[in-house]
Design a protein around this nucleic acid. Structure first.
Lengths: 247, 247
DNA sequence: CGCAAATTTGAACGTAGTCAACAAGTGTGG
DNA sequence: CCACACTTGTTGACTACGTTCAAATTTGCG
């Protein structure tokens, strides 16, 4: 664990509002320490007491729950700049597991630091609420996908979402990106079996909507994919004019 | 629309923390006005600009999205004391529709009022964040249910959840409660067809887990239902010791 | 190079969907 | 108070999407 300078979370917020120096300084407190987490390692386990929150600085993680028949539901993929474990912080025991999908770097901080920011910076409080609401809406989109769309649509939506979220931190990504997930993981995110995910990917490929080679996916026809998936990018279309003034 | 006195939302928060007079007064600002909404009426429509937020004071509502094949996914049932439309407030256009399932009373307020509370009352900001996280976790439970559990388990989970949420505002409810939903609505919430919901209810009844008569449901064996559903009440087990001090 | 994990494919199966018809409520207006 | 229309609930027969199981093949990694 070593000390670092500027906040990754602040960079994400800067996409939407101009942070004041004081605000930026307060956010830096979230990322004073950093910890390396190897691929496959678990940062927080479901039903265990949860001490810390984290900012994900580098790499890809996921949150999931295990059902008592042993099956897994992946709730969310986590990208650099995401705040991890807010929902766990409000419970005595974590409602979900956090696990690294690649080698990652996270910055741990405690509830008191969050509490301090909420005391001193109403506009940052509001932005944290906004972020948790964006996540909420993204979850409802996935709920609708699992409840009411076909296997092909769910896989297409996942590919589009991955592409957009990767692009948020790496503007060089356009049509192609490294998948970084096994077909079993795609299945656990979309409520399908790995076998059926395979068939759906193949079908999307045969229909010319995507191409695959060596773990990389290319979205050949984003329009057609979006149509098949009725996908909405929830990081767009925000209205933040009502936020409290910066302090 | 007429003026009323004490806040319904404050009552909900009081279950978890002791509000100061100043805090209670600030929350009263959310419920200065009230509006009656008839069964079936729509309070906010998906993809339309969203002006107001609401506190639900009386009755039952739901939020849902429509997919472009015309199918509907019900995202959440809303009960007295719930804050409605936070997620809509952060977007230019509402991501979901709000619709009354019974005759209801809501208290409309605007973003500026919320913003004002967040400026003056850090602990209330934190509680609003806590509430949105409880809702988030409840959504992930449903995501896991749709992705990874059987039709019977989803229906059982919905019945348990309805019972617990109704009981939160009416302690007289124990085993029996008025369902207040059509089988089609249960299907749209659980990702099933009305026909299959009917079969599942019948099966739960035949197995002695529930009883039905005239729109009322009785949960005869909550343990067995909870087992079939792996259901967790997310309004329990909170850890709020870290909240900022009241102001 | 050798092993384990991941992917691919086929065949059989089963859960839930679809379609259709009928019954039971529910509310409205005559 | 009844007649009618409409919504909701119920049931059966058939269909289909996605699962399960199994085996072969490829990929990635130590």
């Amino acid at each position: 664990m070593q000390s670092v300078s500027s906040s990754c979370f602040a960079d994400v917020l800067s996409e939407f509002i101009a942070l004041t120096p004081r605000e930026r300084e307060a956010l830096d407190a979230l990322e004073l320490r950093q910890r390396h987490v190897r691929r496959g390692a678990i940062l927080q386990r479901e039903n265990e007491p949860c001490g810390e929150l984290f900012i994900l600085r580098k790499g890809l993680m996921m949150s999931y729950v295990l059902l008592d028949d042993g099956s897994r539901q992946i709730l969310r993929f986590l990208f650099p700049g995401d705040m991890l474990g807010i929902s766990s912080a409000i419970y005595h025991e974590a409602p979900e597991t956090l696990c690294a999908l690649s080698d990652t770097v996270v910055c741990p901080f405690d509830r008191a630091t969050l509490s301090g920011i909420m005391q001193e910076h109403p506009r940052l409080s509001a932005m944290i609420l906004v972020y948790s609401q964006i996540e909420r809406v993204a979850l409802t989109d996935r709920l609708a996908a699992l409840g009411r769309t076909s296997a092909k649509a769910r896989v297409a939506a996942l590919l589009l979402d991955l592409r957009n979220r990767l692009r948020a931190t790496d503007k060089s990504i356009d049509r192609a990106f490294p998948l970084g997930l096994t077909q079993e993981e795609i299945g656990d995110a979309t409520g399908l079996t790995a076998v059926h995910v395979n068939r759906m990917l193949r079908q999307l490929e045969e229909e010319g909507m995507i191409a695959r080679e060596g773990g990389r996916v290319t979205l050949l026809d984003r329009g057609a994919l979006a149509g098949a998936a009725n996908y909405v990018n929830r990081y767009e279309g925000l209205d933040l004019r009502w936020l409290p003034p910066a302090r």
